[in-house]
């Protein structure tokens, strides 16, 4: 079991969460070329090691998180809310 320390709820089993995907995708502008959109939607780094990824606390507070996790050992280095403004709120409350 992976334990994810939700900034809102505290540490919980990963079975409370749903895995989203790569958190580093930058979607191009709407009038960008097909090539750029294809790259953003379909192509992935598929990192072996630490990566930033999204998790949804779907059976908890239902907030989206950015988790820095190793895809080899499953060790977690950092967890923060997806939304940058919420990151500030969580930080100020602590």
């Amino acid at each position: 079991m992976i334990r994810i320390n939700c900034p809102y709820c505290g540490e919980r089993d990963h079975s409370e969460f749903s895995y989203g995907g790569d958190a580093t995708i930058n979607y191009p502008s709407l009038d960008a070329s097909e090539k750029e959109w294809t790259e953003a939607i379909f192509f992935r780094k598929n990192i072996k090691g630490f990566q930033f990824e999204t998790w949804h606390h779907s059976n908890g507070c239902r907030m989206w998180l950015v988790v820095e996790r190793s895809t080899v050992t499953h060790e977690i280095k950092s967890i923060k809310p997806c939304h940058p403004d919420l990151q500030k709120v969580v930080k100020n409350n602590k």
Partner: peptide, 13 residues
């Protein structure tokens, strides 16, 4: 197992 991984071991859920 529903999350990306290169580990050749499964998880309990």
């Amino acid at each position: 197992d529903w999350y990306k991984s290169y580990a050749q071991r499964g998880n309990l859920p």
